[in-house]
Deep mutational scan, measured.
Amino acid sequence: AEKTGIVNVSSSLNVREGASTSSKVIGSLSGNTKVTIVGEEGAFYKIEYKGSHGYVAKEYIKDIKDE
């Protein structure tokens, strides 16, 4: 049951290796980017990222929809 969301930041949002603010940053997404959410862990969504997965803070994702 995948969902999509939109990155809701003015600059960019860090994509992390794990569901923690201390996890390594593996990339970033600019505002209004559409993401595919494959799961959630605590305050983070697990998303599809560059052929693999990454984690982003839930508070910066809006317009969550079921695909």
Rank of each mutant, 00 (worst) to 15 (best):
S12N: 12
E2P: 14
Y60T: 05
I61S: 01
N8K: 13
S30K: 14
S30G: 13
K34V: 11
G18D: 09
A19F: 04
Y55H: 02
A1S: 13
K24R: 12
G5V: 04
N8G: 10
I64N: 06
V15C: 02
G5F: 03
K58M: 09
Y60D: 08
E41K: 08
S11I: 10
T4I: 14
V9Q: 07
K65I: 12
S28A: 11
G31A: 15
S23A: 13
V56L: 04
S23W: 02
K50A: 13
G54I: 01
G31H: 15
K50M: 15
G54M: 03
Y60G: 13
S10C: 09
I47G: 00
V25I: 11
S52I: 11
D63P: 11
E41I: 11
I47K: 00
K50V: 09
E48R: 11
T21M: 13
G5D: 02
E48H: 09
V9T: 14
G5A: 05
N8R: 14
E40W: 07
G18E: 13
Y49R: 00
T36I: 15
K62E: 09
E17C: 06
Y60N: 10
V7S: 04
L29C: 03
V38A: 05
S12P: 09
N14L: 11
A57V: 14
K50P: 02
H53S: 07
S52G: 14
S20F: 08
G54N: 01
S22E: 15
G5N: 03
E2I: 15
T21E: 13
G31Y: 11
S52C: 06
T36H: 12
L13V: 14
G18V: 08
N14C: 08
G27W: 05
K62W: 08
I26W: 02
V56H: 00
V7H: 02
G27F: 08
K65C: 06
S30V: 12
T33Q: 10
R16P: 00
G51M: 08
S28I: 12
E2S: 13
N32D: 11
S20N: 12
V35K: 00
K58Q: 06
I64A: 08
A57M: 14
K58T: 04
N32M: 13
G39C: 05
N32I: 05
T4N: 06
S11E: 12
S22N: 15
S10H: 11
A1F: 10
G27P: 00
Y49Q: 01
V15P: 00
V7P: 03
S52N: 13
H53V: 14
S28V: 12
H53A: 09
S11R: 08
T33C: 06
Y55G: 00
T21A: 13
K58W: 03
E41A: 08
E40N: 05
E41G: 03
E2H: 14
Y49N: 01
A43K: 12
D66A: 11
E67I: 14
S52F: 12
N8Y: 05
R16G: 03
R16S: 07
T4P: 04
K50C: 08
Y55K: 00
S30M: 15
G54E: 00
Y60S: 09
D63S: 09
I37R: 01
E40P: 02
